[in-house]
Write a protein that binds this DNA or RNA. Sequence first.
RNA 1: CGGGGAGUGGCGCAGUCUGGUAGCGCACCCGGCUGGGGGCCGGGCGGUCGCAGGUUCAAAUCCUGUCUCCCCGACCA
Length: 433
Amino acid sequence: MTRLSEYLLPTLKQAPADAEAISHKLMVRAGLVRQMGAGMWTWLPAGWRVHQKVVAIVREEIDAIGGREMLMPVLQPADPWRKTGRLQIEELFKLEDRKGAELVLAMTHEEAVTFHAAQTIDSYRDLPLILYHFQVKERDEPRPRAGVLRTREFVMKDSYSFDRDQAGLEERYALHVGAYDRIMLRTGLRFYRVESDVGMMGGLGAHEYMAPCPAGEDEIVLGEGYAANVEVARGDSRVQCVADGDGRERWTRDGQALALEPAIEIGNIFKLGTRYSEPLGATYLDEHGAELPIWMGSYGIGPARVVAAAVEQFADEDGISWPVALAPFAVHLVALGRAGTPERDAAELLYAKLNEGGVEAIYDDRDAGVGEKFADADLLGCPLRLTVGRRSLESGEIEVHLRRTREQTGGLPLSADAPTLAKAVDELCQSLP
RNA sequence: CGGGGAGUGGCGCAGUCUGGUAGCGCACCCGGCUGGGGGCCGGGCGGUCGCAGGUUCAAAUCCUGUCUCCCCGACCA
């Protein structure tokens, strides 16, 4: 039951002056998030619903490949970080407790999960295994930016795979590629899976999931059947990059023109190998009693970035236009007329029926003008807007407006019962991107 | 970390150059009208001007220090 009159949706006519990125402006204007400090953001009720939509999709797909959800702490002893050599990373928050013991705020959870793997995995019989959690990450970013896109604290789904050898790791990695592909497809985002630099993480391979959008921090190179991040493309012998007269770069692959697009990284997957299991002593005994290091993989996805990328990709001049899978509500019901009027009574009845039918709806029952209500509905960006006013009473129909296309579809009968309404809404949603 | 910009009511801004005790729009509260795209009229509430120190009879305004935030770049395990 979500009546706007009893909700917290602080929409704004003007964006904060210091906001630059589309997602930053719109997410604040639509009442989804508010800032507390540099790189520190609060998710307000409607924004958190969207975030949780992403979380639910991710959870389903990681569960489907056999992931086991758990929860590890953010506050951790410094020791494992010292052992893996990551204690001196500048982005790592370090602190002491009252006794002077060294602690860190985890920026990711390889140390923690490997620490526990060392404790609890003893035999080849315990493998393979996929563990994951949704947990806050803390990073002392030199420069947080663009609203929720680059923050110092954010929730991440990170999963970790454990195998007895490299072949097993390849299998677990392939399972994650499949899960990540399905996750991204389900969100409705436009995305690319690109090979990425393995950097200092070890040379076994990595991919990034990139969502093209104007606020993107990275650049990807795109062609027919080809997508790579810039670093990888530069190392590809078939790819050529020449500067033209204006100092701009022209990319080609086998002579075919490639496009350069800004994108944000919404997920990444790494083959870690024994990078963490060796220093932390995560080993198992094989059939012959030999002690061997566990082969690991690490797989991250940032729901907040998925949300921001969706805003960036589908926004228009009036506000957000969510993909159905991420929308805070499927339906934004607008009631016209004051409380006590017949049209308002009809809206109330419709709202009750939507709830009864299990439709996720936000109901604008405020005593506000039409313009304000429609403007807020456009801003918030729910895929379907249903309007009940005098016209509805005359025609006997609820007006249906599609946010993405601004299409006014044939009305639904006001007299429809709850199951019929739910079915109609569901069918409409399925026809939408 | 380098470069640039900004801190005045919840949001957007003016006032600072040329010191005289804070103003506008929106939002909010009350009353009335209106009711299909941020509507209208009237009446209100709310800010020791980021913080600290200094100069002065007097500081949002001048001086010094400091904190915070934003943008570009570097960075981004």
